[in-house]
Every structure is written in structure tokens, then in C-alpha cells.
Write a protein that binds this DNA or RNA. Structure first.
Lengths: 153, 153
DNA sequence: TCATTTTATGTGTATATGCTCCTATTATTA
DNA sequence: TAATAATAGGAGCATATACACATAAAATGA
């Protein structure tokens, strides 16, 4: 046994068994598929998510939206920038509380979202078919528990 | 039913059922836990991963390492920069093939890795305990299948 | 051998991520 | 009510991510 492999055993577990690494790797992998599918719209995976979330939540503040996305508040602010620049969302000062900033989907935002929806549906169905509905359902549940772990902090 | 919610139904599935969104959200959440744990070492989650991978693979080229990590080659090149700057890895031109660049762990890299290992172990065990070993095992398997989906491209 | 192709890598650009420190506004309390 | 605390948000900084394009070197083929 040479010097290189003498203590390798120690590092096989953090290499292969690390929950963080595996989830991050999977995030990179799955993002490839969705971004490939959304490319005709010019939307990134995150951007599609933000538009959908804004659509579902209606007019919403930065912090509330960030909580729902388990995303840092400052990250969300910056992620909104490209969408605002393209005119898909509008950010206005809160009327009741002037500290707040209210995010709203514009008409252009609704249009791009409508265009993106069938593309999302296609790749989503493709992924569900490849993985199998049972595995997807199970995976989503298990990931939800993982997410709650961080939310509990 | 007002105008706002009239077609909301369409967007509940992409909001709650999107595999990409859920995995990415989970990646953000779990990364918080591991980076919090690794903070005393000054290593980010990705950096710890890169050091471990380099340790396990021994001297390795950028492209081969990128394949193993399911990470874009150019992403890996840039991710290596902070580690190189801190002296944890060394990148040298390939001796046989001068196009290649060989990544090696330095002594300082081995030291920081040794220091980080128990911190990783603690947070990993904590996560496994919180999620339950069964769920973790299942989750890792399901995520592996997801990763293979992108590798098949 | 020399032209062509393939391979390994880097750069420019844009977005994604979150921590620390800062300001403005609202809420609380002495 | 005035001082203080709490809250919402932004800016600076560093890292993470990957596509398009460019370069250098090795492999291939006529």
C-alpha cells in the first residue's frame, strides 16, 4: 500500500456519502435539463421560478418571497434585477410600509411566463417519466424534509 | 373568483411540483448547514468537495475532475482559483500532454482538509440523524438516478 | 510531412448565492 | 414625545455556475 492510498479510506465517505455534495451535484445536473428546455424563452431556471412564485403569491415583498423560496433576501434582490431590466416584473415602494418593496408581475412577465409554461411542462414530464412517478414523489417528500432542516434553524 | 386567482391553478404545479426548483431549493438549504459547520476552516462547501475529490483522485486533470463532479469544466477552473490562491492546491502543466493541467493537493491543502474532516463528520452525522439513515440512503440513491439523467445527455 | 481535426484549457460575459455592514422606516418603551 | 429597538431593504465583497468563443497542443490522415 503506497503513501497515496494509505489513508484514502477516510476520504471515501466525504467523497461519496456527503449529503450536501450529492444534492448540489444533482442540482447542477437537473438545472442543465430545465435550462436547456427553457432556452427558447431566454429564461434561466431561477428566473422561471421567480416569475412563477410572483404569479402565485401576487404582489409580495422581497422578504416574504425570499422566505417562500428559502433564498437569502439579498440573493433574491439581485436575482430580481435581470427580470426587472427585461420588464418582466415591477418593484415599487410599499404604500403602507415605506420600508417594504412590492414585487409585481408585469404584462410582459405574464406573457413570457405563458410562453415558458409549456416548455417547462415538457421537460418536467420528461423527467418524471425518466425517473418514474413513484421515485419523483418520494424524492420531493424527502427533499422537503431536508429543506425543513434548514428552516428550523 | 377574482382575476388574480382565476388561472392560478396552472401555476401551482410549476410552483410546488417542479423537480428542478425543489432540488435547487434543497441545495441552498443543505449548503447553509454544511457551510455553517465548515466556517471555522474558512472553506466553502464546494471548496471542501474539491479538496476531497483531489485527495481521492490523486493528481488529476481539470477535465477528468470536472466529469467526476458533474461540474462544467470552466466552472471547475474558476472554483480552483481561490484554493490555488490560498496554497491548498497546485496546478501544473501536464508533463506528457502539455495541453493538460494537473491538479495536486499541497501539504497545506492536506492540513486544512484534515482540520475540516471532523467538522464535516459532525454536520454529516447530525443531518443523517435528523433525516434518518433510511431516508438518507434512499435520497442518495434517488439523487444518483437524477444525476445519471443529465450524464446521459 | 503537412494540413486537418480533435482535445484540453482559458477568457469574456452574465447570472446565482449569501455574508457583513449600512441606511431608512416603523414599532416600542421609558 | 423622544430615545431606543426592531424591521425591510440595499451595497460591497467573494465565491459558484455555465455558455460562447478563442488558443494551443496532440492526433489523424492524405
Amino acid at each position: 500500500m503506497n503513501n497515496k492510498s494509505s489513508h484514502l479510506r477516510k476520504y471515501l465517505e466525504p467523497a461519496q456519502g456527503c449529503v450536501c455534495f450529492t444534492i448540489r451535484k444533482s442540482a447542477r445536473a437537473i438545472t442543465q435539463l430545465y435550462e436547456e428546455a427553457l432556452r427558447p424563452t431566454g429564461l434561466r431556471a431561477t428566473q422561471f421560478t421567480l416569475l412563477v412564485a410572483t404569479r402565485v403569491m401576487g404582489t409580495v415583498t422581497i422578504s416574504n418571497l425570499a422566505k417562500g423560496l428559502v433564498m437569502d433576501r439579498t440573493t433574491l434582490t439581485r436575482n430580481m434585477k435581470p427580470l426587472e431590466k427585461k420588464g418582466f416584473i415591477r418593484i415599487l415602494p410599499g404604500r403602507e410600509d415605506r420600508r417594504e418593496r412590492e414585487v409585481t408581475l408585469t404584462l410582459a412577465g405574464q406573457k413570457i411566463l405563458s410562453a415558458a409554461l409549456p416548455l417547462w411542462k415538457t421537460v418536467q414530464q420528461s423527467v418524471v417519466e425518466s425517473l418514474g412517478q413513484n421515485r419523483v414523489t418520494r424524492l420531493m417528500k424527502d427533499l422537503s424534509v431536508t429543506i425543513q432542516l434548514a428552516e428550523a434553524e
